[in-house]
Write a protein that binds this DNA or RNA. Structure first.
Length: 299
DNA sequence: ATTTTCCCCTGCCGGC
DNA sequence: TGCCGGCAGGGGAAAA
């Protein structure tokens, strides 16, 4: 599931390869990709556009054009962007939803098994700062993201810290995996009410979020299930996860057994000893066998 | 306003 | 072995 580090990895790989290139054509194979916009309308706008940069805001990618227009992309669950120096081989992208042809012969494929991914056009007149700010909150790796700012965003909230961190308007770019990792690193239980965290917990969490995201970017993202980077390669972060997907294994800090529960409708991994439950509840051990980490079975 | 639930999709896995 | 229900989760809409 592409989260901030995965999207940033793709962004960093795409940018040097596509800046200055002209888009010859955008072929949308699945109308759902641009819904509710008409694929032809998007293709029309994008045709002939010269790429000036590739940006990222949270988990959103933005391919910007000299005209001031841009093409925004969200990979959601299983979306992939893959740059190639030439056309993709036949059947190379099993779940092809769109194909971008560039003037140097290179291509970008948008593949997406689950079809949750979206691609749309952002008009030149739209102010980018406010456009993105209405959708996502502070960038966790920016200087604006401070412990104080995090405390302010969580203050007064009764919702559990896990769904609070999953809320893109509170902090941009965190998903299920990195929230688990950050909460574990900060020794904060996932169901602790967000507004009740102590100052030192907030500081630990702030630090943990930044640290885990930076490590993940350095590792090129985590290839669990379907994620691939912008060149079709697997990341390495899946080997560096400390708690997510580690159900039944010993906690590396205290030796207790990592458990998996459901928090906010999301599978949640945590250490019952390092991340003490606010109500002192003992987790029900799952009887199901832990899911194995599958590293890329999809074509 | 905030929080919770549901839904979209499809591939894969576990259970029978 | 094959079928099938359930699960996975980002984000938006709707409901509470």
């Amino acid at each position: 599931m592409p989260e901030l580090p995965e999207v940033e990895t793709i962004r960093a790989q795409l940018e040097p390869r596509v800046v200055g290139r002209r888009i010859e054509r955008l072929e949308v194979a699945d109308p759902l990709l641009t819904a509710p916009e008409d694929p032809e309308a998007v293709a029309q706008v994008v045709r002939g556009a010269v790429i000036s940069g590739v940006g990222r805001r949270g988990k959103y990618l933005e391919i910007m054009f000299r005209s001031g227009d841009s093409m925004a992309v969200h990979l959601r669950m299983t979306g992939r962007l893959h740059w190639r120096s030439g056309p993709p081989a036949d059947g190379e992208e099993r779940y092809l939803r769109a194909l971008v042809l560039l003037d140097d012969g290179a291509t970008i494929t948008f593949g997406d098994a689950r079809r949750f991914g979206r691609l749309w056009h952002v008009a030149s007149g739209v102010d980018r700062t406010s456009y993105w700010n209405t959708r996502v909150g502070v960038e966790p790796l920016s200087p604006q993201f401070t412990a104080d700012r995090l405390a302010g965003a969580l203050a007064g909230r009764r919702v559990a810290i896990k769904p609070a961190l999953l809320n893109q308007r509170i902090v941009a770019g965190l998903g299920n995996m990195y929230v688990d990792e950050a909460l574990y690193a900060a020794c904060v239980h996932p169901t602790r009410p967000a507004g009740e965290l102590e100052g030192d917990e907030i500081r630990a969490l702030h630090r943990a979020i930044r640290d885990r995201l930076k490590v993940a970017i350095r590792a090129g993202g985590a290839s669990i299930d379907t994620y691939r980077d912008g060149l079709g390669q697997a990341g390495r972060m899946q080997t560096l996860l400390r708690v997510h997907l580690h159900e039944g294994e010993a906690c590396r800090r205290c030796g207790a057994t990592i458990v998996k529960t459901v928090v906010a409708q999301r599978g949640t991994y945590w250490c019952p000893q390092c991340q003490p439950d606010p109500f002192g509840m003992v987790p029900e051990p799952s009887r199901r066998r832990p899911r194995r980490i599958r590293q890329g079975v999809q074509g």
